[in-house]
Amino acid sequence: MHHGDNGNEDVPIRVTPDIGLVAPYSRRWRQSVQRLSLALLVAQNSVLVMVMHHSLSGPTGAQPRYRASTAVLLVEAVKLAASLVLATYDSCASYRSNQSCRAVLGHLRKSIFSRDSWKLVVPAALYTLQNSLVYTAISNLDAVTFQVTCQLKIITTVLFSILLLGKRISSKQWLSLILLTFGIAMVQITGPLNALDRMQGIIALLRGDVGSNSGAVKGFLAAVASSLTSGLTCVYFEKLIKDSRGSVSLWTRNVQLSFFSLFPAFLVGVCWQDGVAIHRDGFFAGYTLAVWLTILLQAVGGLIVAVCITYADNVTKNFAASLSIVVSYGTTIVVDGIPATLHSTAGASIVLLAMYLYNSRSPAPPPLLPMARQRMHLAEKPAKTHLLQP
Rank of each mutant, 00 (worst) to 15 (best):
L378G: 04
I333Y: 02
S362H: 06
S360D: 11
R373T: 13
H343I: 05
A354R: 03
I333W: 11
G347L: 03
L357H: 04
S344N: 14
G330H: 05
L378N: 10
T345G: 07
M371K: 10
R373G: 09
A372I: 06
I333V: 13
H343W: 15
I350S: 12
S344F: 06
P365M: 07
G347M: 07
A346F: 14
R361G: 06
L369M: 03
M371V: 10
Y329A: 05
P363L: 08
L353C: 13
A348D: 02
M376N: 11
M376L: 12
A372N: 08
P339Q: 08
L369W: 02
T332N: 15
A364M: 09
V335I: 13
L369N: 02
H377V: 09
R375S: 14
A372T: 12
M371N: 02
Y358C: 06
R375W: 04
V334C: 11
T345D: 11
M355K: 00
T331K: 00
G337N: 06
M355S: 15
S360E: 07
T345A: 14
S344A: 15
L357Y: 09
A372S: 13
V351R: 02
L369P: 06
A340Q: 10
G337S: 10
P339S: 12
Y356L: 14
Y356H: 12
T341S: 14
Y356D: 00
P366I: 00
M376Q: 11
P370I: 04
S362V: 02
I338W: 00
V335K: 08
Q374E: 08
D336E: 12
A340H: 05
A340C: 14
P366N: 05
P339C: 02
Y356I: 13
A348M: 07
V335T: 04
Y358L: 03
L369R: 09
A340I: 08
L378I: 03
V335G: 03
L342A: 07
P370E: 03
M355Y: 00
S360K: 15
P363R: 00
I350P: 08
L378S: 00
A346P: 08
S360L: 09
R361L: 08
A364L: 13
D336R: 07
N359S: 15
T332L: 11
G330T: 01
V351A: 05
P363V: 06
R373L: 14
A348I: 12
S362F: 00
P339Y: 11
S344W: 01
R375F: 10
L353E: 08
V335Q: 06
G347W: 03
P366G: 12
N359A: 12
Y358K: 01
P367R: 01
R361F: 08
P370M: 04
A372P: 05
H377R: 13
I333N: 01
L352N: 09
Q374K: 10
I333M: 07
L342H: 07
P365Q: 11
P366T: 10
H343S: 11
T341P: 01
P366F: 06
Q374T: 10
L342T: 14
G347D: 04
A340T: 05
V335A: 13
G330K: 02
